[in-house]
Design a binder for these strands. Structure first.
Lengths: 263, 263
DNA sequence: AAGTGGTCTAGACCACTAT
DNA sequence: TAGTGGTCTAGACCACTTT
């Protein structure tokens, strides 16, 4: 839908706030090539006059473009269109999150919940001494009735809380992705490695040993900055691929068309 | 000396803007556990009185926290601390960018620049007919004098531009990561797969065939939305690992770092 | 009705850059 | 000196939620 680029203007009776409309206008003008990478945008005072909005509103729109990485500002010089930059690409875990979307065919199967003595690697990660008791949880996650993820996790053992609650973690895993529940975690460190399935993982995932896979390691901390959980996800590489875009993505144009829009 | 967390206040003579100071104060209070996940922050009018700043300044600070994913706002209800959410994790390519940091021991070696006829896969990706002429570029990227990346790229052949310029792409590869130069690209689509090195890649990377690796595929478009470049990076999995953090990262706590916080 | 977030104004003052 | 971005004010009005 090509809207008239001749005289774009702010519609004060729209739901879309003025600053958002201005963001879309400028974004479109950059995407259309009106402002080229390295080129300069009109000054903020010019934009104020051009679109009949206050300086703060223009400022807010420009700030959003800066945060989106489309332009950069330089005090006393102006606002410039940034060239595409590969190193700004960000990959999310949307592909994994979709496994926990509540689809009935996406199941989390609990393989094991037990208390074990921490080996060297586990102890050092969880800041415990070797041989300390930890809770081992092993899960198999199915997507569309097919095993796709194998999760092995070690939790610090808290005698004040019954182990049964650890089973609740099955749902907590949902929450970790969805953002509900589990309020005792402050932060986490993650890493993704390239690997191949070992015999154990291959058997559980019903895949041939040696199959390329992603190895997603996680370490979660509580609000006292003590490690609480260390674990690894093994993801079948043939079923998961991480995607991202960089630069001016075409879609994502005016989103947020609310139903029942009053004029 | 630790800064008194009892009565944090805005320092108007500071170089740090008021809104940024307020962001840090609130961030610190959330990280310290004063406001727990699910809990409510003071209302904006309370914050105005508490810190003696105008509504717009408070609003800006809160907006930044929202963008950072630390809190969420609900009109008419208040501002609430968000629990940690795994699906918000974002992985960058910092690990790859460091290869192009200008270190003399990080070299890009050009293996091949030639004009070839596009095979089926190349043609479909670049929106050409099979057999069309394309420029094939093969590069080997070293980090610390060790081969770490193998890049195979296909460019649409533009008769109006001499092939020699394609060689300039060696430097353009730097620019792609650094953000300098190459202003003809509008956007790109990327994907990461888990894979293992084939014989060709293994030989070039001086690694055993079958070694786990990341396969980073890219497709770049120009401002007319025509594909310009399709290629693949093969990254030795034993030398590269992607990291990310989620939740309240221990970033610049300024002087507020508490020493010896044990038990 | 009271309180909350959300938008916006019409200026002000400052720091920086170019001429 | 003139123009640029950067911060900030002290309100206003609106939409929404709770009591």
């Amino acid at each position: 839908m090509t809207k008239t680029d001749h005289t774009p203007s702010i519609d004060r009776s729209s739901f879309e706030p003025a600053y958002a409309q201005l963001v879309n206008i400028l974004h479109g003008q950059i995407a259309s090539g009106l402002f080229r990478p390295g080129g300069r945008l009109p000054s903020e005072s010019q934009l104020c006059r051009r679109y009949q909005v206050s300086p703060m509103t223009v400022r807010r729109a420009v700030n959003i473009l800066v945060e989106q990485g489309l332009v950069s500002t330089s005090q006393g010089r102006g606002t410039f269109v940034k060239p595409m930059k590969l190193s700004t690409v960000m990959f999310g875990l949307d592909e994994l999150r979709s496994v926990f979307d509540g689809n009935a065919r996406n199941k989390v199967k609990l393989l094991e919940v037990s208390i074990v003595k921490a080996a060297e690697d586990v102890a050092s990660r969880l800041d415990l001494h070797r041989g300390a008791r930890v809770i081992l949880i092993r899960r198999l996650i199915h997507k569309e009735a097919q095993p796709i993820l194998y999760h092995r996790e070690y939790l610090v053992y808290d005698p004040t809380r019954p182990v049964v609650e650890a089973e609740m973690e099955v749902t907590a895993l949902h929450g970790l992705f969805a953002g509900t529940g589990e309020t005792s975690l402050k932060r986490g460190e993650l890493a993704i490695d390239a690997a191949v399935l070992g015999d154990e993982e291959a058997h559980l995932l019903m895949a041939p040993p040696g199959l390329p896979c992603f190895r997603l390691e996680h370490l979660f901390y509580d609000f006292d900055d003590h490690p609480l959980s260390w674990g690894v996800f093994f993801c079948r590489g043939d079923l998961i691929r991480f995607r991202a875009t960089v630069g001016l993505s075409d879609r994502a144009r005016q989103r947020g068309r609310k139903p029942g829009g009053r004029t």
